[in-house]
Amino acid sequence: MAYSDKVIDHYENPRNVGKMDANDENVGTGMVGAPACGDVMRLQIKVDDNGVIEDAKFKTYGCGSAIASSSLVTEMVKGKTLDEAAAIKNMEIVEELALPPVKIHCSVLAEDAIAAAIADLREKRGEAKAESAA
């Protein structure tokens, strides 16, 4: 299987690997996937007082494309508001990393991870209800 140069770059030099305090009020954690399926992503985002994502960290168990997708996502979300981050679509990841069709599920998982992290943060901040009411 041939990997694109971008996948290899993210795989060999993953960006923003790590873990943040999940109890921090400004940190949202999203964990998606399942070990039995061969991939689990944990994405964490931290927002500043203006609701802008100032930091993001990930850890991923999965194939090279899953690791690269989550690494890329940490770069993409930084500096974005939650609404902007929520608008990221998996096809942007597919295009950026030149993922082959069998690896598209990795990008879907990464999109799910963003959504899960944002939902966690909004719930913590009591925005979940506001969202569903809107």
């Binding site: 690997v17 873990k19 070990p35 689990v40 944990r42 850890k59 991923t60 168990y61």
Partner: peptide, 8 residues
């Protein structure tokens, strides 16, 4: 393993 949330 340093990258793995499961290992964590």
């Amino acid at each position: 393993r340093d990258l793995s949330p499961l290992w964590d």
